[in-house]
């Protein structure tokens, strides 16, 4: 640009600049909208496949009969999924809550940060590794064989850090004044925590338990090595009796070349997905209302 025409290019440059800014703004928002639509589209696609194919596969037989070969129903698997999930919760909920109480209420020494760190890392350990660990120790060494007990322990280990850290978060939300009031009235630690803090934080704690339930119902890999599969209803033995569950039916039956097997796989996927999504939405509904809450994990 010549020096004589100095003012003019500056104006032109400014308008170019403005145009460039407008285009960049447009591109930026456009890309972010595309990214969002990709995710939303994938979600709709998955849900459509599972719901439509699953719905067509549903019949009364599916929920009233046990599996026979590659047909029949899924009663055994539905029962097994519920037994394993609740078995896992019975083990993990008290322990996880106790650990959460320690981290939130009595966090004074050097132990708490270490436990918090170990719990967070345990969340990231692949579930198949936990399954293999349970296989080596419980199924083989202790001789429990494929069983409800081994499967429940595997699910409990996976659930524990979630329940622990969600309980901790929930308890931290309880106002300090409530504790001070209770202590001032002469209450002991156990009374303050179990009588005041835990009831106040119950919605948050429940969220963690629901999250653990959703994970347990959706897990497959750790159960293949610990619960195996069974075509029959549970006879009540905790050990040495394999048990079926829905996610196994999805994995095992979709690769079989029979229409009846495919129908069972889709029906199982329908139940599992619906159940997991409903629990996740329910647990979120508790939280959406509460500003300041930050969930420890997305799952």
């Amino acid at each position: 640009m010549g020096t004589a025409a100095a003012p003019l290019p500056r104006i032109r440059a400014a308008s170019h600049h403005r145009l460039r800014r407008t285009i960049l703004d447009f591109l930026g928002w456009g890309m972010s909208a595309i990214a969002f639509l990709l995710l939303g589209g994938a979600m709709v696609w998955i849900l459509a496949v599972v719901v439509m194919r699953g719905y067509h596969a549903l019949s009364l037989t599916v929920i009233t009969h046990v599996t026979e070969g590659y047909g029949g129903g899924l009663l055994n698997a539905i029962e097994g999924t519920l037994i394993l999930a609740f078995g896992g919760l019975i083990l993990s909920a008290p322990l996880g809550l106790a650990a959460g109480i320690y981290l939130a209420e009595f966090d004074r020494g050097r132990l708490a940060p270490v436990i918090r760190f170990l719990a967070d890392v345990l969340v990231g350990v692949p579930s198949i590794v936990i399954g293999y660990f349970c296989y080596v120790t419980l199924v083989e060494r202790l001789g429990w064989k494929f069983s409800v007990a081994a499967g429940s322990v595997a699910l409990a280990i996976i659930s524990l850090p979630y329940i622990c850290r969600t309980s901790e978060m929930a308890l931290r939300q309880v106002p300090r004044a409530l504790r001070e009031g209770a202590y001032a009235l002469g209450a002991r630690d156990s009374r303050v925590v179990l009588g005041i803090c835990v009831p106040t934080a119950l919605p948050g704690i429940l969220t963690g338990v629901l999250l653990a339930l959703a994970i347990s119902v959706g897990e497959t890999a750790p159960l293949i090595y610990t619960a195996d599969w069974s075509n029959y209803l549970w006879t009540g033995h905790l050990t040495k009796e394999p048990i079926g569950y829905l996610t196994y039916a999805i994995w095992a039956f979709i690769t079989e070349p029979f229409a009846s097997a495919h129908a069972l796989a889709y029906a199982a996927a329908f139940f599992v997905t619906l159940f997991v999504l409903l629990i996740s939405i329910a647990s979120r509904m508790v939280l959406v209302e509460r500003p300041g809450w930050r969930r420890p994990w997305t799952r």
């Binding site: 194919r53 119902v217 979709i254 599992v272 939405i281």
Partner: peptide
């Protein structure tokens, strides 16, 4: 925001084996 976010973030709640089914069949 809360509800639209929830919809997308529920992708993380869908079990791995259901992704496998979707991937395998569709």
């Amino acid at each position: 925001r809360a509800w639209v976010s929830l919809f997308v973030e529920l992708l993380a709640a869908i079990p791995s084996v259901v992704y496998g089914l979707w991937g395998y069949a569709v």
